[in-house]
Nucleic acid binder design. Structure first.
Lengths: 180, 180
DNA sequence: GTCTATATTTCGATAGAC
DNA sequence: GTCTATCGAAATATAGAC
């Protein structure tokens, strides 16, 4: 609390005035952080774009957003791991029941992927695996960054170049993985 | 410290007797945790197996190992994020300079991938992207688990089934993504 | 709303008996 | 090696003036 107050140019008492408790501050930060990523990403997945552009949109949006806040994924993963209840609280405070919303998105995606598989355009893949694959491929450079820095001696500019390259080739790699 | 002592059936004083400080305990836990994954994974990557079996070995080893300690990836990510110096300390205490070791592994993999690309067996891909793709695809179910539980209402057995399925299809998906 | 001062609790660490 | 008792510091939270 002391460090946060200093960074904000105020004192601890004022933090308590606004957030009541340390836990309240933590919950607020988690909500606002996760809300920077989730709606945008869901927007792409639920759009009417063709699959190729959904994939490209997802990858570009994710990498571009996180690039400007590179600690975001690690922070969200860390918080979900240590305080899974914050996820529930986040949806509650937004007045959203996540399960039916997700079920709807899942059903739409499932139909789209099935149709494309039926017509022989892509391999058969479940919507769960499709989404989680993209997420894993997009997020891993950021969470593995400390290791990349140490073992591959990647400094900041090398990491940025790695991201630039990855941003361009990842959509193609994902599409290729779906080829029949 | 209090909670850990309770869990271990001892008291705080004994923890201090063995680990001197809280930081010492944390460093020890990180070293032992990371050492459960890293050498095995590197063993697969540096083996003389053909690419197909390297991929399969990596995926199976990773999922099987982490399945029995599902918090391991989230914990390691969390610690790398908040205390990147622990990575350095880990290699130091093992008496290993990670950079040259990694450079050697990287060079070997690069040659293997180049040869396969030259002969038209696979698409051209850098060893960095090759390894980090596999890592991201293998790790993401575990770090995303709290979200899967909440939004897809996955209980423990559903998650285990998801892992079973993924363990089998992931090597094929990765291989397919490498097809020319 | 914002501050200073302070109360209260928690936590890491040590002393010393056994 | 393991324990009980306790110290001292740090952190969270509150009171009350402005």
């Amino acid at each position: 609390m002391q460090e946060i107050a200093e960074e904000a140019g105020v004192n601890q008492a004022l933090l308590h005035y606004y957030f009541r408790t340390k836990e309240g501050l933590a919950a607020t930060i988690f909500k606002e952080s996760a809300s920077r990523l989730l709606p945008a990403v869901l927007g792409v997945l639920t759009s009417d774009l063709p699959l190729r552009e959904k994939i490209e949109g997802f990858v570009h949006l994710y990498i571009d957003t996180v690039r400007s806040s590179p600690f975001l994924p690690g922070y969200i993963i860390s918080e979900m791991q240590h305080h899974p209840e914050r996820l529930t609280a986040m949806f509650e405070s937004a007045g959203v029941d996540p399960a039916p919303v997700a079920a709807g998105i899942r059903a739409r995606l499932a139909r789209e992927l099935e149709d494309l598989a039926d017509s022989g355009t892509i391999r058969r893949i479940s919507p769960e695996n499709f989404v989680i694959n993209m997420l894993g491929l997009a997020v891993i450079p950021f969470v593995a960054r400390p290791a990349l820095t140490l073992v591959l001696r990647m400094d900041d500019s090398a990491f940025q170049r790695f991201l630039d390259e990855r941003r361009e080739i990842l959509p193609g790699m994902i599409l290729n993985s779906l080829k029949p």
